[in-house]
Design a protein around this nucleic acid. Structure first.
Length: 467
DNA sequence: CGACGGGACGC
DNA sequence: CGACGGGACGC
């Protein structure tokens, strides 16, 4: 009832939930309502009539709550006689009022869905996942990189009937983000650049972080190594983007043996974008330089790491050679040990990497509650927090660690290129607790403003916002 | 005093 | 061939 009068943006919501009927002019709203209510919750029945004569024009619209109900009704009622002696009715999914088109919506456009799936899914996995509850599948395919054959984590599933596709979209796990697929020939596909060869290459190989040139081919394998480079336990890291001491600390502390870390300031107390780090052994310093020089942190900001002469490790050229040999040996041990270097965390690739710490280091003055599990990713978001970071956003894993501790955290979203983000909660109380505890606080050297987010601006939604 | 993402093709 | 009404009300 109250749903009958909504702003114009809500016409045909959800999509494909409204039927277009062609009937005899004698068919009334009551007749339609009586027959069609068997298939679901009817929101509105409207028989189009001539303004003057009030006579039916033989055209009606039936709005259902759900697309699956409308589709089932269409499938069952198309071609049926509502009343003895009247002509069989035609039933279609109505064109969205905004579309302006009066072309019949074809089954072709209503039977194929587009889903996001784990990259590990095979076509059989896809078929099994989407056939069990929603019925037999005519065809399914996973989108793959043409050259490598690697799955892009996207799939198409073609059903026999529109009601199957609609039910799958409504009832499958939200993580699949199922939507109706655009017909292949109609739209020439908006943009293919997401998985360009250059990007695939970047994802696949990562020579900078997984090769160990010291072990195989001596010291000077990185083209930028100059003969004048010195090897010391002391490093200088330079960053173009502003970076905090705690961020530098966390990064370099991933390699064991750090015993000193300090941001450099100019005479006015402003950050120079440089920090000095010292390790208690040469091997760790060499390893840290090798791993972190050129490392992107935060993403897009390439760090530069060089050894600096702190006076303690200065030696004659011969002594330096000896020290490089020592460093190389240590690197070799660290990288080739059968069980791997115990102090370094391992990623799924089996290589130690500072990019994927398993549980982030969190430094803060606030007394934080214990960790809590995240809410399921398809939970309904009841409250969002808007967080402003200074000077830079904290890494995602740190944010998850900190903001999950009040319960029901669904997702962290950082706005790209801005120092703000959203924390999505399934329970209002969790969000309010997090805000009360964390607003104005400092975490890993980053100051946070934490407040309730304004509701998002609603417009141009082809698909309902997932939050 | 900062503000809203992600995903496209073979019988 | 067969395509778009009715009536709305709180910060």
């Amino acid at each position: 009832m109250e749903d009958a009068f909504r702003p114009s943006t809500d016409l045909d919501d959800p999509p494909n939930s409204r039927l277009f009927l062609v009937t005899s002019k004698s068919i009334t709203e009551d007749m339609i309502r009586e027959q069609f209510s068997l298939f679901g919750e009817i929101q509105d029945v409207w028989v189009v009539k001539d303004k003057q004569t009030k006579e039916s024009k033989g055209v009606s619209f039936v709005k259902f709550t759900k697309s699956s109900e409308a589709c089932t009704a269409m499938e069952e009622m198309h071609g049926k006689c509502l009343v003895e002696g009247t002509k069989p009715i035609k039933v279609f999914i109505a064109q969205a009022r905004s579309s302006g088109s009066h072309r019949d919506v074809e089954d072709e456009e209503l039977t194929r869905i587009f889903v996001m799936i784990p990259k590990t899914f095979t076509e059989d996995d896809l078929k099994e996942t989407f056939k069990v509850e929603y019925g037999d599948i005519e065809y399914c395919i996973i989108v793959k990189n043409k050259t490598t054959g690697e799955s892009k984590g996207l799939g198409y599933v073609r059903y026999h009937k529109p009601s199957q596709a609609a039910t799958a979209i409504e009832n499958c796990e939200k993580t699949y983000r199922a939507i109706l697929a655009e017909p292949r020939n109609k739209t020439p596909a908006p943009d293919n650049d997401y998985f360009s060869p250059a990007r695939a290459e970047h994802v696949q190989g990562d020579p900078g972080m997984t090769s160990y040139p010291f072990v195989d081919s001596g010291f000077h394998t990185r083209g930028d190594m100059r003969g004048t480079d010195i090897i010391t336990r002391c490093l200088m890291v330079s960053s173009r983007a502003s970076i905090t001491q705690d961020q530098v600390y966390s990064l370099f502390d991933l390699i064991p043996g750090m015993d000193y870390c300090e941001m450099q300031q100019d005479s006015y107390g402003f950050s120079t974008g440089q920090a000095m780090i010292r390790y208690n052994n040469l091997g760790s310093a060499v390893y840290a330089k090798n791993k972190l020089d050129g490392f992107e942190y935060p993403p897009g900001n390439r760090l530069a790491v060089t050894h600096i002469d702190d006076g303690q490790d200065r030696r004659s050229p011969v002594g330096r050679m000896a020290m490089q040999l020592v460093a190389a040996q240590m690197m070799s041990i660290v990288c080739n040990a059968p069980t791997g270097p115990p102090p370094l965390r391992k990623t799924s690739t089996g290589y130690p990497s500072p990019a994927v710490p398993q549980s982030p280091r969190v430094q803060t003055d606030v007394a934080l509650p214990p960790l809590q599990k995240l809410a399921p990713s398809d939970s309904r978001v009841k409250e969002r927090l808007f967080v402003v970071f200074k000077p830079l956003p904290l890494p995602m894993d740190v944010l998850e660690d900190v903001f999950c501790r009040f319960g029901s955290l669904v997702e962290v979203f950082l706005v790209p290129g801005r120092n703000v983000g959203y924390m999505k909660y399934a329970e209002r109380k969790s969000a309010d607790d997090a805000m009360a505890t964390l607003h104005g606080q400092m975490v890993n050297g980053v100051k946070m403003k934490v407040m309730r987010a304004d509701p998002p601006k609603e417009e141009s939604h082809k698909r309902q916002r997932t939050y």
